[in-house]
């Protein structure tokens, strides 16, 4: 009943583009309760040398999670979606996410391995704009074994 280990190394087709707007950045910053003006104030962001307001460090998850969720239900992976716990998250930033970015997510299955009676799966998501890397995110999920 475990996950399909043959899927390690599999790269899913690129996602549909996600258009970044000032409103989406502001809504996310507001939801995490962060009032840093760089997320809201165009003039302030410009004064720091940015083209527009920039997205908070964990904003990429709002882009990658909905893409990954589709794959969690992929029968080829045989992942028990109802037993998933998000255990680790990592981001490596190449450049800030800005207004006007059309973000495309390229997801690959990096690792699947047993962990006690559970299984652990790592998804790597490269987030690109105009074919250039913006940020890479790794999401590690534990699939809790059946009791």
């Amino acid at each position: 009943m475990g996950m399909n280990h043959d899927m390690v190394g599999f790269v899913y087709p690129d996602s549909k583009p996600y258009l970044v707007t000032a409103e989406k950045i502001a809504a996310f910053a507001q939801a995490i309760g962060d009032d840093n003006p760089i997320y809201f104030d165009q003039d302030f962001a410009t004064s720091l040398g940015h083209k527009s307001v920039c997205a908070p460090p964990t904003f990429p998850i709002a882009v990658t999670l909905t893409v990954m969720e589709e794959y969690f239900n992929d029968p080829a992976l045989n992942m028990n979606y109802s037993r998933i716990v998000h255990s680790d998250q990592r981001f490596e930033y190449t450049r800030p996410i800005e207004v006007g970015d059309e973000l495309v997510v390229r997801t690959s299955v990096e690792e699947i391995r047993p962990l006690g009676g559970n299984e652990m799966a790592t998804f790597r998501t490269d987030v690109l704009s105009n074919d250039k890397l913006v940020v890479t995110a790794w999401s590690k999920l534990v699939v809790r074994g059946e009791e």
Partner: peptide
């Protein structure tokens, strides 16, 4: 001050 100076960030929940 400038959040874009964060180049890597990782946690375990």
């Amino acid at each position: 001050g400038d959040p874009t100076s964060v180049v890597e960030y990782s946690v375990r929940m």
